[in-house]
């Protein structure tokens, strides 16, 4: 009994030693950042004076998480305070949504959220702690993302028109990379609405699975994430027929939009920060300016070019607030077409 105890204690002590060493390695980064403190005494409010938490309502590794972790070091530099990314996934995005809705509105907790998914969450889910309009939009830093319609590289359909015309005479299989009430569902519903074409829909769990089905010849076309689609197109496996943005993409200006080909399907994806309801306006303003500053910096622009992130130009607080409000009003009217075009 004594022997076990001694050995156990020794093991635990050695373990503690190793981890305190590895812990030191991580902490040293944080102390470096603190040196740049005191830059932020703009105006009357002294903000920020302690670390800021950005809640990501999804698992690590997803699109929103990756984008947030990409901006994190630059935002940290701009604010002069550590920025902590915290994942609170679950229930679509409703777990993180509710968490931030109930967080202290002191400017030290924000949510990184995608539009229009956050609006869909508000419009389709019960039991939410706050309405979408109660959150305070801060600013956005991912603004060049949308939904692409992808076919195989050897597909007989060279343009969107070819594809739609062909779909009128024979039922096509369209793969989606999400299920009911996802953004892909909305893109399909809008496409079906403007063309009057019915597809056989095949919803997949992720863009990767949808792409595999496309490559294997199990579906005729897919809607997938933009990064997946562009990567596949660059590799010569797939061809993007159209993107759902209002104007052409700045990262791939040679791809035509739905709109310019005569089909009014516009659904853009943006990722921005939201402050909890009742956060003081001057604090939101400081955060918004710092975020825009970080997202406009030379280093960040190089970074997103390297990682092929569809970031585009940042939106300021005024632009972002207006955009969110306009989108909310638009989707409130449009959300019922989801019911008109169910997946199954």
């Amino acid at each position: 009994m004594k022997g076990f105890f001694k050995k156990g204690l020794l093991l635990i002590l050695v373990g503690l030693l190793i981890f305190s060493l590895s812990g030191c390695g991580q902490n040293s980064g944080a102390t470096n950042d603190k040196k740049e403190e005191n830059q932020s005494s703009e105006g009357a409010v002294n903000y920020p004076t302690k670390p800021i938490t950005i809640v990501v309502p999804y698992n690590p590794g997803g699109g929103v998480d990756t984008s947030t972790r990409t901006i994190q070091p630059f935002l940290q530099d701009a604010l002069g305070q550590p920025v902590v990314v915290e994942n609170r996934p679950g229930g679509g995005m409703s777990v993180g949504y509710n968490y931030v809705a109930g967080a202290k509105p002191d400017g030290y907790t924000f949510m990184a959220a995608p539009i229009p998914t956050m609006i869909f969450t508000d419009l389709t889910l019960p039991n939410l702690k706050a309405k979408f309009n109660e959150f305070k939009p801060v600013a956005s830093w991912v603004n060049d993302d949308c939904s692409p319609l992808v076919v195989r590289a050897d597909s007989p359909y060279k343009t969107l028109k070819d594809f739609v015309e062909a779909a009128k005479s024979k039922t096509m299989k369209l793969g989606l990379s999400g299920g009911a009430y996802s953004t892909d569902h909305m893109t399909y519903a809008m496409l079906s609405e403007v063309t009057g074409v019915k597809f056989n829909l095949v919803p997949y769990g992720s863009s990767g699975e949808a792409l595999a089905a496309l490559e294997g010849g199990h579906v005729d076309a897919i809607l997938a994430s933009l990064v997946t689609a562009i990567t596949a197109q660059d590799a010569g496996q797939a061809k993007i027929l159209a993107v759902s943005k209002n104007e052409r993409l700045s990262i791939a200006p040679d791809i035509p939009t739905f709109k310019e080909q005569g089909y009014d399907v516009v659904i853009e994806f943006h990722i921005g920060l939201f402050a909890p309801p009742n956060t003081p306006d001057d604090i939101v303003k400081i955060m918004a300016d710092k975020l825009v500053q970080a997202a406009s910096s030379e280093e960040f622009r190089n970074r997103v070019k390297e990682v092929k992130s569809p970031a585009g130009e940042p939106m300021t607080q005024e632009e972002w607030s207006k955009y969110c409000q306009d989108e909310y009003n638009r989707w409130k009217e449009m959300v019922n077409i989801l019911e008109k075009h169910p997946l199954g």
Partner: peptide, 24 residues
Amino acid sequence: TTSVFSIITPILVYYLFNVIGGTN
């Protein structure tokens, strides 16, 4: 024995998950 293990284990586990795992 009780106090040593019941103090060290939670702290060690907390440390492991929060430092390496980045959880909260």
